[in-house]
Design a binder for these strands. Structure first.
Lengths: 212, 212
DNA sequence: CATAGAAAACTAACTAGTTAGTTAACTGAA
DNA sequence: TTCAGTTAACTAACTAGTTAGTTTTCTATG
């Protein structure tokens, strides 16, 4: 109690930066505001990070690396492919629950085309789809899955979760306008539905009727 | 040929604005750059649109309204629900092909939480999920679909397409780094795969094995 | 232990450049 | 003459990054 003069930690700045970048995007984020949110003098921020860009890259590299680590652990385990997909979906949801800024930053960076990222950050980002693709390829090779394209599988699983969770504020806005009657659908229910849908979508055929 | 002095049209400005907002986002977009892209004096831009914000809102209202119109036409037709879903997916892909800026702007706006939008624009935006939800609810009610939540259905269908198409530049960046070996997957193939996955995911049960 | 001096942590105020929006004056057609 | 359409130049506010100088903490030596 009553610590005399709280030391400035880079983590404290990264945390504030995550909130600011998630809310406003790279261009909309203000370094002064990040410093204020971190309760740190701006020059102190520049003492720890050389520029706004480097701060952003550090943040994203950290975020993507942590997410990829988890997925790689799942991919490397010896569960059945269908169980791995289930766990991947749960892991993505868990990472997002721990870092609620993740979906928004990811959406923005995809829209931006990776304009602010360097090689190292792109490498970290790429590990995420790679882990998912490895699981799907294994499932297809072993005959547990039908011949789904791993890139399609990646997007069809990740995109809805990220989109749904990033969209929470705008959905709140819309329901506030009484413009759409979104029957409550909690994140947990969404994840369960996604697991169910993925299972059905990847499962080997047992004759499916074609839509007219 | 050799038109003497092309009149400035608002459409020409809107077109340039769409490119700029898609590439840079609302905060990153520069009014000077929009004017230059439209080959128009900046004061002329302000002659037609009262502010950057109003230009943005006009653009988004137009885009969402056009997309919603198409989906409403499909929802109102008398095809079977499964066929309607097929057509909705194709229609979303078609709208995006005609307006390649759509996915990027949509991703950004979701991430932003609708911060720059007014009531009219939010209304136009809401019409898109409403049309999809109506189709799914009809399918569930008629027994053609299993009991999928319409909000989940909307996200599981729309998000992958938007994400995949918005992600084209960053995927190009990644494959350029030889960091991931994305077997070519064309937009047309992606759409077909999405239609297939949706059919499987919404179809009424005929016993599905649970993943361990 | 005491303390000088170096290194690290910290700050208020500043700078150079940018940006949305304005203005005052001009042009040509009805 | 009138006035919608058009322009270059301007302005007030903002923004990333810097600087010059202060305070705290660490370290080594008598």
């Amino acid at each position: 109690m009553a610590r005399r003069r709280r030391r400035v930690s880079p983590e404290q700045i990264l945390h504030a930066a995550a909130l600011e970048f998630a809310e406003r995007g790279y261009a909309g984020a203000r370094v002064d505001r990040i410093a204020r949110r971190a309760a740190v003098n701006k020059a102190m921020l520049y003492y720890h990070f050389t520029s706004k860009q480097q701060l952003y890259r550090t943040l994203l590299r950290q975020m993507f690396s942590r997410a990829a680590e988890r997925l790689q652990a799942i991919a490397g385990s010896n569960a059945a492919p269908a169980a791995k997909v289930d766990r991947v979906i749960a892991a993505i949801a868990a990472v997002i629950q721990e870092h609620p800024v993740f979906p928004s930053i990811m959406l923005r960076e995809v829209a931006e085309g990776g304009a602010h990222l360097d090689r190292a950050t792109l490498l970290a980002l790429a590990s995420v789809p790679r882990a998912v693709a490895a699981i799907v390829e294994e499932g297809v090779a072993s005959g547990a899955f039908r011949a789904v394209h791993p890139v399609f599988a990646y997007f069809s699983v990740l995109a809805p979760i990220v989109f749904y969770l990033a969209g929470t504020p705008i959905r709140k806005e819309l329901s506030h306008l009484h413009v759409i009657d979104l029957r409550a659908l909690s994140p947990a229910e969404f994840v369960a539905a996604m697991q169910d849908a993925a299972r059905r979508s990847f499962a080997r055929d047992r004759r499916v009727r074609r839509a007219s």
